[in-house]
């Protein structure tokens, strides 16, 4: 537990990273993900609790003795040293003999595709290249854990996607165990083996990207990851619930008993437009109230006749009829397209 004045920045964190996996700490700013990273790296000492690296208790070990490679938000390359000197720094700190040091620096720069840039200064490199140098510097000494603190924030979208794949490839190739911090859910879904969604100093959910997206554990995760329709509902019978406004729906399997206050989550792409004769577990007639073109998909805000507001997203097929504001449309979904969570 780490307290800053009255605020408890982390509480009840219980997290184990598996060997060779990329685990992402995902959360909004202030959720404690950066503090947790600092605790792991050794820049903050927890008021309570312990940190293990393998079987070694490093709770009180200084950062230098933890054998953790770290890539910082702004890369933190040393501006007064060349690229090669930057990469050699951790080896020098470990008193690696000169010849071996040079060899490993060469290899590391090769690994990140910058074999000819050793003599440059960091400021002479592009953002993406600086990122690679930071990566090379963080892995050159064979750390047992790699920490990545929002490393792609400063890159433009295209470069960011490219670097994400590259980091992932490198991490797999070297078999590195990595902890990655980001507030960008898309990035987390792309990169991670597992994601720990953080909220107010706690882990709100830990799971694979699929689990997190499809089966969010609570309202926070449901709201934070992806877009969703979340209907508040009351369970009225063994397998049916009443959504606010009086609409009845059949519940997915495993729902709690009558009287429970639940939320029903529907991803916008899971609802389908029904033509006459098609059936679904749940069908509603709506009117289109808003349209947003998103490129490959179009997002519609629909106003159901019962008063319910539903957002749907369907692929955009260029040709064919598209809907216009005011059009009437029937949408439906099966009960397993929905996912229930406890409301509170």
């Amino acid at each position: 537990m780490r307290r800053f004045g009255e605020v408890t920045a982390l509480a009840g964190i219980d997290l184990a990273v598996r060997p060779g996996e990329m685990l992402t700490l995902l959360g909004p700013s202030g959720s404690g993900k950066t503090t947790l990273l600092k605790v792991i790296a050794g820049f903050e000492i927890p008021d309570e609790g312990e940190v293990y690296l393998g079987s070694r208790n490093v709770t009180l070990a200084p950062p230098a003795k933890r054998d953790i490679g770290m890539v910082f938000q702004n890369y933190a390359l040393f501006p007064h040293m060349t690229v090669a000197e930057n990469v050699a720094f951790p080896l020098q700190m470990r008193k690696v003999p000169r010849a071996e040091c040079e060899r490993r620096v060469r290899e590391a720069l090769q690994l990140v595709d910058l074999p000819a840039h050793g003599d440059r200064l960091p400021r002479q490199l592009s953002g993406g290249q600086q990122q690679r140098v930071a990566l090379a510097r963080a892995v050159v000494f064979g750390p047992s854990l790699l920490l990545l603190d929002e490393p792609f924030g400063a890159l433009d979208r295209k470069l960011r996607e490219q670097m994400q794949l590259e980091v992932r490839r490198l991490q797999r190739r070297l078999g590195l165990t990595a902890v990655f911090v980001t507030h960008d859910q898309e990035e987390a879904l792309v990169l991670s083996d597992r994601i720990a969604v953080m909220d107010a100093g706690r882990i709100a959910q830990l799971g694979t990207p699929q689990e997190i997206y499809r089966l969010p554990a609570n309202r926070f995760v449901a709201g934070f990851i992806g877009e969703s329709n979340l209907f508040r509902a009351k369970v009225v019978a063994a397998d049916s619930a009443e959504i606010e406004g009086g609409t009845r729906v059949r519940l997915p399997a495993g729902a709690p008993g009558a009287g429970a206050d639940i939320g029903l989550l529907l991803r916008p792409e899971r609802a389908t437009q029904l033509s006459a004769g098609e059936v679904a577990d749940f069908t509603i007639a709506c009117k289109v109230s808003e349209i947003v073109y998103l490129g490959e998909t179009i997002k519609y805000r629909l106003q159901a006749d019962g008063g319910l507001d539903v957002i749907v997203r369907w692929p955009f097929r260029g040709s064919g009829a598209t809907l216009a504001v005011g059009d009437r449309v029937t949408v439906g979904w099966d009960r397993d397209d929905m996912h229930w969570i406890h409301w509170s």
Binding site: A41, G42, F43, P62, P63, A64, R66, I68, G69, M70, F72, Q73, N74, A76, F78, F89, P90, M93, R94, R137, A138, F141, L147
Partner: peptide, 14 residues
């Protein structure tokens, strides 16, 4: 930027 010092420490410097 204190991050510079943190970086050096994470890389093994006292």
């Amino acid at each position: 930027d204190i991050g510079q010092e943190h970086a050096a420490m994470s890389l093994g410097a006292s």
